[in-house]
């Protein structure tokens, strides 16, 4: 399990730029950033090197930010890599709330998942021979 930073952001001009600048000023390095958007607001999800400091920096800059435990799995960068992983979870009736993927190195990708029952999911993922990112 790793800590993801989630930020509640209104759909207003310049807000995302201000967010990334606040993180830059706190010397936070991001691995991944994704936005779940609705018509009124977005949820910005960030994987970074210092999640706790990132939340403190964002709070100080007037953002509403929290940390959330998510699962990060290393999957091979080839057709069917993610399908193999998700089928294992599906077989156990585990729901995925959301997920996204980012490439870390050439041969493999890292998938981030928020799952309904993380303890069971982690065990299933490890039993299936996948590597969890730390």
């Amino acid at each position: 399990m790793i800590k993801q930073v989630t930020v509640f952001l209104e759909n207003t001009k310049g807000r995302l730029a201000a967010l990334t600048r606040a993180l830059a000023d706190a010397n936070v390095n991001m691995e991944a950033l994704t936005i779940a958007e609705t018509s009124d607001y977005g949820l910005v999800r960030i994987i970074c090197d210092k999640p706790v400091e990132a939340v403190a920096a964002l709070d100080g800059a007037g953002f509403r930010a929290i940390t959330t435990e998510v699962i990060a799995v290393v999957v091979p960068n080839r057709p069917g890599g993610l399908a193999d992983l998700l089928e294992k979870l599906d077989a156990l009736d585990l729901n995925i709330e959301y997920g996204y993927c980012f490439s870390a190195k050439a041969g493999e990708a890292v998938d981030v998942l928020k799952v309904s029952d993380p303890t069971r999911a982690v065990k299933a993922i490890e039993d299936a021979g996948f590597e969890l990112a730390k």
Partner: peptide
């Protein structure tokens, strides 16, 4: 406005 302890990580919760 949300309070600091509100867990808004999922769009569904909001």
């Amino acid at each position: 406005e949300p309070n600091p302890d509100f867990d808004f990580d999922e769009v569904r919760a909001i």
